[in-house]
Amino acid sequence: MSRENDKNVFELVLEMLEERFKDDNRKASLAKRIFKEFLISGKRGLDRIVREEIYKALESEDGNETTIEENRGRRI
């Protein structure tokens, strides 16, 4: 039996994710986080991770702005 036979599914998944995203640490890390969090907390954990990632993407240097005040300043 090959070396793979000695490994459980958890180890295999992590190894394969690592292999799959070997050129992109960020993706590898995110995929592993998703896998582990899903095993621990199920769909809720997965949702939380995605929420965090969305928040990170939406976050800007000047805060999480949503709207711009209209008609600021006077017309010339």
Binding site: F38, K43, L46, D47, V50
Partner: peptide, 18 residues
């Protein structure tokens, strides 16, 4: 086989939210 988690993950990743 212990791989249904991967199926669930595949189905649960909330792309719609993004």
């Amino acid at each position: 086989l212990g791989i249904e988690t991967l199926e669930k993950i595949f189905r649960s990743i909330p792309l719609k939210r993004i």
